[in-house]
Design a protein around this nucleic acid. Structure first.
Lengths: 244, 244
DNA sequence: TCAATAGTGTCTTTTAGACAGTATTGA
DNA sequence: TCAATACTGTCTAAAAGACACTATTGA
């Protein structure tokens, strides 16, 4: 049991990012096409190995966020998602990857002119479908990230991270509908988000759209945990069926 | 930016366990006294380095569970808690630790006769208090584990993992009260857990106690997610104040 | 004017919370 | 019998869900 010569094994440490945003009223994830082996040509999450042995994990996540997506740390939610380290998941050796979940507000353009201009936004439905070819175990990581986002919309103010500095209530509702894949009653939604104290606070101004009455603008409130939580509709009433 | 000689750095990978159980109507965590440097003599979570470079992470967690606590995989909840890899957290080098959260039913005795007989159950209140000396960043890991358990009692059937194969409703209530640190109305609790379909199912038998009417026994039901969730009382009504 | 979106009010159903009261055991 | 715990019923307040209605814009 005890071998004096035994030394603990070392592993390669990588950081992978599930970057979610709202585009075209859909939940989308940033994927890059791999230019090198293994899985050359397949889609993968942005990420990479630690730069040096003393690099901090959140620092590495922010670095990849900047390098591969051109996103800065300001106004962006970042949290650890989990560790993926099954032996054999990477043919190059024992690679253990720390996955981070990032939520970004809608961005000007699909990250043109960045280091990784081969990055593209893909709807999570498509990324998780059978047709998409994802490298490594990245399909599972995306699925876990989406599931985390779904769950956190219920009991936290995470939804505001998908919006800009100010947003309308129907924008916020679009986030809930897209992430949950359901259709919500605008009137009850309006009442609900306003009644949860500290979730959103009025910004005082309004925003016009092409048509209809201008909507009041709101800012994220100080409240992080939602009590009582937003209730996710149960049963088979998903958005597609409901709108059909 | 691109140095042809650059190779990704390697790190040491460890697994640490937050093993929670109910003892004396309190939430307790298993801690071991370190026999070697660093932090020799301080309390620490059970855990250690990977045995070999191809060892799977859940396998390593189960191995430590058996070695350091004498617990087998049967009838024990195990989930990944997170990664703790701040540079400098371990003076021996860059050590990245994957923390697992284990929930065990009340056990016969405080793990006597095992490999690590210096293991002892400590109430989480005590482990998290200022007086306890915990090695590395294990105080934070314990805090995160307790917080995870608290949150999951709300929207999952995790509480049954603290109980044996069969249990009474008041046993289940004790779990909620100890983990949340609140006092709950037994009659409303009784109605509530029975109304959530598939949470617990009657086992058909009863169990006598020293005094009082025998209680019906229940088994964990098939439902993992609780809809609607158990509601954690808000405000300053904690168990200590309530019982004083 | 109409079409479209924003926002309010009101009713019904469900659920949480408080708590009186009955049931079944051991001493 | 009494003390102690298990369990049931009932009332009230709060919240969810359905949906009619008013408000404010551009065309």
């Amino acid at each position: 049991m005890s071998d004096d010569r035994w030394v603990p094994p070392t592993v390669l440490l990588a950081v992978d990012l599930v970057i979610l945003t709202m585009r075209e009223s859909r939940l989308q994830v940033l994927l890059v096409q791999r230019g090198v082996e293994p899985y050359r040509g397949d889609l993968a999450l942005p990420g990479g190995f630690l730069n040096h042995v003393e690099e901090d994990l959140p620092a590495a996540a922010h670095r990849e966020l900047a390098e591969e997506a051109g996103l800065s740390a300001d106004q962006l939610h970042l949290e650890q998602l989990g560790v993926y380290g099954t032996p054999g998941r990477d043919p190059r050796g024992r690679v253990v990857s720390v996955a981070y979940l990032a939520i970004a507000p809608r961005l000007p353009e699909p990250t043109a002119g960045t280091d990784a201009s081969d990055a593209c936004w893909t709807s999570t439905d498509r990324a998780l479908s059978a047709e998409a070819r994802l490298a490594f175990d990245h399909r599972r990581i995306v699925a876990d990230g989406v599931e985390r986002a779904r769950a956190k919309l219920e009991y936290s103010a995470l939804a505001t991270a998908f919006c800009g500095p100010t947003f309308t209530i129907s924008e916020l509702q679009d986030v809930y509908e897209a992430v949950w894949g359901v259709s919500l009653d605008p009137r009850n939604f309006y009442r609900k988000v306003q009644s949860v104290d500290g979730f959103i606070v009025p910004a005082g101004t309004t925003r016009r759209t092409d048509t209809g009455r201008p909507a009041r603008l709101f800012r994220p409130g100080p409240r992080e945990a939602l009590h009582p939580p937003m209730t996710r509709p149960t049963g088979p009433a998903d958005k597609e069926t409901a709108k059909a």
